[in-house]
Amino acid sequence: MARPFLSTQLRTGLQAPMATAVSILPAQQLATLEGAYRKSVARKRSKAALATAAFCAVLVIAAFGAEVNLRTLFTYFGNFVSYFDRILTLDSGARVWTDPAEWFWGWHKWLKMLGETILISYVGTLTGAVLAFSLNFFAAQNTSPGPWVRFTVRRLLEFARTVPGIVFALIFVIAFGLGPMAGVLAIAIHTTGALGKLFAEIVENADMKPVEGIRSTGASWLSCMRFAVLPQVSAGYASYALLRFEINVREASVMGFVGAGGIGQELVVAIRKFYYSDVSAILITIIVTVFIIDISTGWLRGRLFGKETRR
């Protein structure tokens, strides 16, 4: 604290006299400080402005690339609204909720397809998780037997992860024939790629201090793994696998678009053939199912691994 405080100085132009513990600096000194502040802020601001301008320019180019046409949007936006109006109207002209039996006339078939969808994602997720589990130790830095193995496994996982599941499904439908098997395999491969990377990251991030702690009590290597590493990674593995299951249910719901089984087949037919009320009915069953799966896996994760691992 270099300078002593000056006497109280009442500032003008403000309300009633008040205790002011700040003495305004002389104008010249203020100007210097103000100048220095403005200068360094201006540098940051101009950088930010430049970045914003560049981003906007890219956006404009993208708008041309994607043939964005605001006029189309405005002209057809009514269609979007009326589309929802139509899918919420029965053939008889009544609102769908006035006659749930008519609205969900196909519930028996749809529930069966929905069950198939969930099974597809379940079998696909489990297969993918097992494959990822067996591959992740080769991909993790601290456990991989060699750099070449690691490199190859990593590239394989990357490939499986980057190519969208539905592209695999398109190809598998040709190789394995139409049906849910192609969907399961597509999901399994995509899941292997996604989970393999996450699992490997968990192994790499495992805290080695507990291992040291257990070892210091005189435990064997196996005990170290069982009691120091496994508790750390197993929760993460299961948590990611459950999360993936959730995602896969969504993914499996569209596998039917390319003939790879599940509820998607029904949906795409309903949309393409303009069976409006069917569209809303199927969408609602899908949304409700995804909700239930979300909530129950969330509950399961919380139950199994405590609150802290939830998301």
């Binding site: 690339g65 189309t72 057809y76 269609n79 979007f80 949309i271 969408l283 949304i287």
Partner: peptide, 19 residues
Amino acid sequence: GVDTLIWALVWINVVGLGP
């Protein structure tokens, strides 16, 4: 809860095929 592909189908019905 609704997959992107489903939304795409819906929007195609509204603004037509295309990006």
